[in-house]
Simulated scan of single mutants.
Amino acid sequence: MSLHSLRAVRPSFPVAAIALLALLALTGGASAHGVDTSDAGYIAEITGWNLLPYVYLGAKHMITGYDHILFLLGVIFFLYRMEHIGTYVSLFAIGHSTTMVLGVYFNWAISSYFIDAIIGLSVAYKALDNIGAFQRWLGFQPNTKAATLIFGLFHGLGLATKVLEYNMAEDGLLPNLIAFNVGVEIGQLLALATILIAMGFWRRTRSFWKYAYSANVAMMCAGFVLFGYQLVGLIVVP
């Protein structure tokens, strides 16, 4: 699962695609999980159980969350067997589902800049883990499953801070939250399927091992810049 001896030589199409996704995460950092005005207006007007609309909103929220997708890409980058992919994706899903529902239900008012900064660090962490940095620096491999679960908890808090912006009605809050979470999982599965198809084609080419290092460096840079961007927002924005 880790990369020890690869070196980047020159850009390739897969690396360029990952770099583009990283660029979208950076340029859309403030709005990747923002609440669309029309969506916010719709949510403010409805009450009671509205399961299908919340499923749609949850799926939309995840698919447009570039930082979540980058982390998911990092998690499965060197996973080949479906049972391993299922284990790690399930741990991530358990983490973000738990804190997303609890954070909204109990109105945990945590700074979105703080949470998004940690999410940026999670992307950088996973990229560094993929290139074997921690083994070289620390002399041991951190528990990747525990890290995936822990960062999943923070990703869920990130979702919760944005969902709270919807000002959901108390009437039907819990079932609507569950529906939103179902939508998030659907969006995650769609994103995962797209990533796995693209990775499957790339892994069959000689360029995969040649440029995998560059791809993870691009993700690492995106994570650190996103962390810095959110940290500035935490300090500057009142």
Rank of each mutant, 00 (worst) to 15 (best):
R7Y: 11
V9A: 09
P11G: 02
F13K: 06
P14D: 00
A16N: 08
I18H: 00
A25M: 14
A25T: 14
G28Q: 14
G29S: 10
G29R: 09
H33I: 09
G34Y: 07
V35W: 06
D39A: 11
A40Y: 03
I43G: 09
I43A: 15
A44N: 06
I46Q: 13
I46E: 07
N50S: 11
L51V: 03
Y54W: 04
Y54L: 05
L57T: 06
L57E: 03
M62C: 03
G65M: 04
I69A: 12
L72S: 13
F78R: 02
R81G: 09
E83N: 15
V89F: 06
S90K: 12
L91T: 07
A93K: 12
I94G: 15
I94V: 15
G103F: 03
F106L: 07
W108V: 02
A109T: 09
S111C: 08
S112G: 13
I115L: 01
A117K: 13
I119K: 13
G120M: 06
G120L: 01
V123K: 03
V123F: 08
N130K: 00
N130E: 01
I131E: 00
Q135C: 00
L138W: 13
F140G: 01
Q141C: 03
T144P: 02
L149N: 02
G156P: 10
L157E: 04
L157M: 10
L157R: 04
G158D: 00
K162M: 11
V163M: 07
Y166V: 07
M168R: 09
A169M: 10
E170S: 14
E170I: 11
L173E: 06
P175W: 02
N176D: 05
N176P: 07
L177G: 01
V182I: 13
V184A: 13
G187H: 08
L190I: 15
L190V: 15
L192A: 13
I195E: 09
I195D: 04
M199R: 10
G200L: 09
W202R: 04
S207I: 07
A215W: 02
N216P: 00
A218M: 03
M219H: 07
M219W: 04
F227D: 09
Q230H: 14
L231W: 13
G233V: 10
